[in-house]
Design a binder for these strands. Structure first.
Length: 275
DNA sequence: ACCCTCACCTGCACGC
DNA sequence: TGCGTGCAGGTGAGGG
């Protein structure tokens, strides 16, 4: 489900909940959640360690432990964390469970079974194939207009498709791709290598704006006591300007929002404002 | 390099 | 009420 702002929210909430906690026992109940590690190895690598920090790179959550290992987590569509007490029963799709010293545990639940975990040496996190290929963090100074211009120039694909490519622009997903293009007033169907300087500049600003605005909204959300990171999903869906608004009036010009399919996924845009 | 489809799963909304 | 269909905020693989 989540895109960069949601993963950021989960990462921060997770940090508040588990940094400094000692994992007494780690269980990998669904082996395919971490296909590169056998459940026994998963347990032995993580059990007995203390959580040092929680951070994020793109849509990946990085849980650093004090034993030289880092647990890399991707929530994909439906992965989420729950902080449960001994009195709570496990949810239906509890694919990994981290028992803390004390009387609570962290459960990774994933209805659609798309989520992924991987245990790596902390020194090698940024050299793993998942992380190494990611484009620069869009809200960091490593991302700037010329770097966006370069990746766009190199591609003849549609802008929407390039925005979804994590090796080209990192952290954007299906919602924020539509939102950023609306804010930039650029058609999602336009070829990436067919943008002038002004449009590139607008797209750059818009990418940052939609992501940072979404992160800023998090501060206003009451944290959910059990579901870590649930807060941001509790926000009203009417905050989207075009996403999931097919047929509704454009917030700028009232033209009906159009939905098209690109690379098998829905794109929403205003045919009048976005050129 | 691109483009498309499928695959991985469950659950929900919708129309009949 | 049930059943079929298409859809869902992600990504990788495989074929043309």
């Amino acid at each position: 489900m989540p895109e960069l702002p949601e993963v950021e929210y989960v990462s921060r909430a997770l940090g508040r909940a588990i940094v400094g906690r000692s994992i007494s026992v780690a269980e990998l109940r669904r082996p395919r959640l971490a296909p590169e590690t056998k459940p026994e190895r998963f347990a032995s690598l993580l059990s007995g360690s203390v959580v040092g920090s929680v951070s994020r790179r793109g849509k990946y959550i990085l849980i650093e432990l004090n034993n030289g290992r880092t647990l890399i987590v991707h929530l994909r569509m439906s992965g989420r964390f729950l902080l449960l007490s001994d009195d709570d029963s496990d949810p239906k799709f509890a694919h990994a469970v981290f028992h803390f010293e004390g009387s609570d545990r962290l459960v990774f639940e994933d209805q659609r079974h798309f989520g992924l975990m991987k245990v790596v040496s902390t020194a090698k996190v940024f050299h793993t194939k998942e992380i190494a290929c990611l484009a620069p963090e869009p809200l960091s100074e490593d991302f700037f207009p010329d770097c966006l211009a370069a990746v766009l120039k190199a591609s003849n694909r549609s802008l929407k498709e390039v925005l979804l490519d994590q090796t080209k622009v990192c952290g954007i997903g299906n919602i924020y791709a539509s939102e950023a293009l609306f804010l930039a007033r650029i058609s999602p169907r336009r070829r990436a290598n067919n943008l002038g300087t002004a449009r590139i500049q607008r797209l750059f600003q818009s990418i940052r704006a939609v992501l940072s605005d979404a992160i800023a909204v998090q501060a206003l959300v009451e944290p959910h006591p059990v579901v870590i990171g649930e807060g941001i999903y509790g926000l009203p869906d009417d905050r989207w300007r075009v996403y999931d608004r097919e047929g509704a009036g454009c917030v700028t010009c009232s033209t009906p929002i159009r939905r098209i399919r690109q690379a098998g996924r829905s794109t929403y845009y205003c045919p009048k404002c976005q050129r």
